[in-house]
Amino acid sequence: MSNRSSVTDPAATSTGISSPPSTYRDRKSFLSGAQGPLIGLFLLIMGFSFCSSAFFTLRNGLNIIDQSTILGILALGMTGVIIIGGIDLSVGSVLALSIMVLGWLPQDFGVPFWLALPLSILVGGLCGLVNGLLVTRAKLPAFIATLTMMSVARGLANITTDGQQVVGYPEWFTGLATERYLGVLTVTVGLFIVLATAAWVFLKFRATGRSLYAIGGSVEVARLAGIQVGKLTILVYVASGLLAGIASAVMAARLDSSQPSSGLGYELDAIAAVVIGGASLSGGIGSIAGTVTGVFIIGVLHNGLNLVGISPFIQQVVIGIAIAVAVTFDTLRRRS
């Protein structure tokens, strides 16, 4: 129905707009803003398929998706934060705190595991709330506020068990990350797909999601348009914290253990994924489709280089260059 109405729209025909009406619809499609990174991902997959016979297989594809879930979940939250022009340096540490709470509550306090799981995710949300309040109420720059949380959460993660790790989770829990239902999907991958879809729908189709772009474009313009900038900013940081908590549960299931040193440096990987996906660190630009593509570019690079057997030292160089190339060409493309 909507298709027909656009064709017969008298405005489009009578005013004689120079570009065909279809461009409008195309660019608003699922992948809007993510075409560049997607081409990159496609070429990477092609290249690795040539290089390694083990690469282009269903099994390895599932492996890559498995391997990308933790980073992917963190990057979803980071996308929101970066769209409003903020940054969240604390996600790696918040993940560590949540994962320790998950192990610590049952081990030292006898809290049943089913209760510890939501509590540990809430702890992540709480960290996000503090970030949001520091940014909106105390008016700290996001970089400083979350840098503070990065340190505090890491410290708390160590305090819980005095730096010791916790090993051994219920079988059903670790099964969430390892058992592939229908031979394809683990529950954690399914969870990632659900979360990514929800985030995509939120940013694309909800008025609140659109408001985030306005805040990132200009806080002042957004405020003058009646958007509740402070409230939404807090919401975004809370979401980022909650997602770090969820990512920690995925990691615990995958590793069958909790370590206070978990997630060290993950915030930078998450930021890299979002930026490779075409977001702008100055805010207002970014998309879930782009971020998911960015996450898989990083995942495919790691996996492919391992499969091809390239030395770890060269891998670091290649990944660094890939980030620079992706972002440079995205910037050039936007400018032209």
Partner: peptide
């Protein structure tokens, strides 16, 4: 084939998965 986990166990799990695939 050498892989380096940079001290992170989650990364190492991914890498061993890749070695097995390889």
């Amino acid at each position: 084939i050498v892989v380096d986990a940079h001290g992170d166990s989650a990364t190492q799990v991914n890498q061993i998965q890749d070695l097995i695939t390889r």
